[in-house]
Every structure is written in C-alpha cells, then in structure tokens.
Nucleic acid binder design. Structure first.
Lengths: 234, 234
DNA sequence: CCTGTTGGACGAACGCCGTTCGTGTTAAAC
DNA sequence: GTTTAACACGAACGGCGTTCGTCCAACAGG
C-alpha cells in the first residue's frame, strides 16, 4: 500500500482542531475587544471573530451575553490589591480601595457602563473586594448597619464616577469631535444661557467645567468617607 | 350636479389625516411604553405602534433614539417643584430636591438606566433643576467649586440609587422569580459562603440585605449633605 | 379653479444584533 | 474498533435602529 497524497482540496480542511475554546479564553477575548473598540463594539459575533470561530460556539461556555459581561466585570476586579485592615488608617485604606476599584473600571474604556444595571455583583473577586471593604470599615469601629450602607454607597459612587469619567474622556459619544472642542462647546452654551434665568450656572461655568485630574472623584469620596467617620465612636 | 355617494370601498381609505404626530406626542407615547412595559421594551417600532404609524415616521420629529431618550428624561424632570432658596434650611431643601429627583426617576420603572451613560443633561427642565440646586447650595454659603462638585456628586448619587432601586424592585431582571424569592435566595447564598473566607459578609447578612423603605437612600444622602455642610462657613 | 411645490407619512429594505437549531466532528470510554 | 457524549459551528429566526424612495395632503401663486 503505497502512500498516496490526498487531493489538495481535501487536505487541511480545518487548519487546527480548535480545541482551545474555554470560558477564560472567551472572557480574555471580550476584554480585548472592549479595550480596543469600546463596549458598544462588544457583540457575541465580534468576540467569536476574535477567536476565529462563530458566535454559536460561545454558548457552550457562556450562558448568554449578560453572563459574559458579569464574568468580564469580575475579571477586572481581580487586579485590585486588598490591604490588611489597620484600624488606625481605616479612612485612608477605604479611599485607597475605592481608588483602585475605580481605576480598574476606567482602565477599560467604557466598560463601567456595563456595571450599572447589573444588580449586586456576585463574582468571586467582587465578593473578595466587598469583604475587604467591610473588614476595613468594621476595623474603623462602625456598626454593622453603617458598614452595610457604607459599602453600598461607596460602590454606587465608584461605579457612577467611573461611568462619568469614561463618558468625559470619550468625547461624549459623538463622533468627529475632539474632547476639547466638546468642552469648549459646552462652556459656550452654558455661558450663553440667559443670566436672568440661570444666574448660578452662568456664574459658575469655570467651577462646573473644571476637570483637574481626579479632583471631582476625590471630593465626593472625601464627602462619603468623612461622613462615615462621623458615625464612628469618638 | 346632484351629490352622489362615493362607493363604500373607496370611502375612508384613510380613517384620519394623521396630522397629529409631533415631538410632544412621541415623547408621551414613549413614556407610556416605558411605564407599561419597561425600558427594554422601548423601541422605535413600539413607540410608532403606540401612535398607529410606522417607525420611519418618527424620524421627522426626532433625530434618533438617543435624542428621544434625552427628551424622555427631560420630560420627567418637569414634575419636580423647586423651592425658593432659604439660607436657614438649605440642607433640608437640598435633600427635598434630591428626593424629588429620585422620585421622578423611580416613578417610571427602570427609566433611570437611560439616565446613566447619557452625559450631562442639557434639557430645559434639567437645567432648571440644576440651577435650583446651585441656588440652594450657594444660599448655604458654599464656595463656587464646592457647589459645582456638590451638584455633580448629588446628581450621580440620585441617578445611581434610582437605578439600584429599579433593579431591586424588578426582580433583578430574572423572569418567573418574585422579588421575595430572589432576596431569600441571595440571603441563603451569602449565608452559605465559607465563614473563614468571608467572615464579615456572612456575619452581616441582615444588615447587608436590609431594605426598609428609603433608609439606604437617606443614609447616603445624609452622608453627602452633611459632608457638604462641613465646607460651609461656621 | 387649476397647478406646482413642499414637507410629513410610511412601506420596504439594509445591516446589525442575541440566540437557537441541527448537523457535523472529534476525543475519550468502553 | 466501536460507541457515545461533548463540543464546534453554519444557517436561520425574530428583532433592532436607521435610511431610502415614494406617495400624498395641504398650501402658494397665478
């Protein structure tokens, strides 16, 4: 039986066995898409394309797009480092954790938008972070109820400011307009409002539009943390 | 020329001239859809159906769906009543305005979800409400910058808690499961976590899941307002 | 009264989307 | 070597936002 070459049009019909698909790989691919093209570009077809396959193949590993988003959000929570609670420094530790949580979100374009409207996050990393925050608040001497409401308010604030930031740094979704142009435009609009009807808005344009690094976030964060501190025993 | 009745199959080919379409009517119809079926059911086709027409007809009055959502959000802001600033009561007035803003959102199912990720609202009612908030804060003696960051933080908090509330009261988007069942389920899940890994979550289940009216919202609101008060002159 | 113009109404279609179904393929179990 | 169960995946379904071309009602000018 001499070996006969197979007809070329039959050989190599599949280049690879493609046995590589997995939850992890899918989430990683989805994160690549979000980082490269933004949340709106994240579709099942687009993720599948990233993996050289079809959209249907994803459903063997992921229930639906919503679950994929949950996995995505939990994945990025993995890179916050949780400090050992130090009762003396609980306020600064809370702030540091909040900064990291926000940083993890804004590091991935407008992914934060997916975090809103997703209910309580139950992923393993989300739970670890929540536990860490509760531990720090508790170390600060706060009551259970204040701790509970506190993490809730902080989580809300972190997510909301992350969304705001991603909108701010992405030209407000409009195309063909740079961020600076858009800001100038808004300033002009605010300035052009009738001063008799909007004395404060027109009078505070500079303060309203001010955007110096993380000042906005830090201001709100301090509001919350120092408010929580007032609930701590003297 | 005696008047001859037109053949019945020719008469009334169109029941009405349908000259009724307008921006106002479209926004009203859209609000009906959201109130009746939720934000996910709000499509251009669905709104058009509500007006006995086709989706294409809407585009003569509304640029696109995004603009329709903006109009919708501004419409519901119309029913907050803005108090005359009273420097003696500025904290309570801010809280009252915040409660109304949140109330307007949660009164329309999960419409709040559309408010996130929409940038700064520029509608007339939104501007009036922002102006009113600035006026009250200013009457409280706060600096321009504190006023500006303050309204921002308050607006973020109002929207975020409204979204949270709408999720909470709508069974977390899952179908066929009542709200109470879902809450019980979450409590069980939290309770079943390994206590050595999650001592605080497992120890605070009751505090974490507590849902007594607007306690959560009022707690966070007081955090923010009393934090702002610390920036006021003594 | 006729005619020309114009702006809104609207059916059909385009290119997306999330998801499902049926079939093909392959690697492990027997 | 054969069976079996899990995975891969093309095709299709119903729905979406939006655009295009056509149609028609109402008005303007003669």
């Amino acid at each position: 039986m001499t070996s006969v070459p197979v007809p070329p049009w039959r050989a190599e019909r599949k280049k690879a066995p493609r046995r590589s698909l997995s939850r992890e790989a899918i989430v990683t691919a989805a994160l690549h898409v979000v980082d490269a093209e933004g949340l709106d570009a994240l579709s099942m077809r687009r993720v599948a394309q990233e993996l050289d396959t079809g959209a249907a193949s994803l459903y063997a590993h992921v229930a639906n797009k919503e679950e994929l988003l949950e996995l995505l959000l939990d994945r990025i929570q993995a890179d916050v480092t949780r400090p050992e609670p130090d009762p003396e420094r609980w306020q600064e530790q809370i702030k540091e954790l909040a900064r990291q949580g926000r940083g993890a979100l804004v590091a991935h374009r407008d992914l934060a938008r997916a975090a809103i409207g997703q209910g309580i996050p139950f992923g393993p990393n989300a739970l670890l972070n929540a536990e860490a925050m509760l531990a720090i608040l508790k170390a600060g001497g706060l009551s259970d109820q204040v701790c509970a409401y506190g993490v809730d308010a902080l989580a809300l604030f972190i997510t909301a400011t992350a969304v705001e930031e991603s909108l701010r740094s992405q030209g407000f979704g409009e195309s063909g307009v740079t961020l600076d142009e858009q800001i100038v435009r808004i300033r002009e609009y605010f300035g052009s409002l009738p001063p008799e009807g909007f004395p404060h808005i027109t009078g505070m344009v500079d303060a309203l539009m001010r955007d110096e690094g993380d000042e906005r976030f830090e201001f709100g964060l301090d509001l919350l943390v120092s408010g929580l501190a007032r609930h701590a025993p003297a």
